[in-house]
Amino acid sequence: MNCTAPILFAELSARPGLAETLKFQATGLVVVFGALALIWVLLEIMGAIFRQRSAHKIVLPAPSSAAACPDSDEFPAGVVAAIAAAVHITLRGQPHQITSIKASKNSSNWAAEGRREHFSSHRVR
């Protein structure tokens, strides 16, 4: 709908005086602050409602604890967290505990896993 609102906030002349300009500026700042403050208040209310809703949801216990890993001192915390997350996803949330993390030496496990995936994706006649 086309709104033909009257010109608000005092019609400023082409060459306004200082007092007129200051009044115009103050009104402008009030409009901008008012609009954004109103959005702020509404967002706070919305946030409170959504936080309350999520608090009601059942929180499942974390199935693994990277902090419990005894060998984690030799790895940066970020690496331990990434490995713990990968294990959690691979085991699809089954209860588990990481007891140690060690670097594999001369291991061909990755290559073996790749071959297994490759072959399992084909039907061997």
């Binding site: 010109i7 608000l8 019609e11 400023l12 402008g28 409009v31 901008v32 609009a35 954004l36 959005i39």
Partner: peptide, 16 residues
């Protein structure tokens, strides 16, 4: 971004 758009709207309102 929102604030500048509102300020622009205010200027347009004021100067028609």
């Amino acid at each position: 971004v929102i604030g500048t758009a509102i300020a622009a709207g205010y200027f347009i309102s004021a100067f028609g």
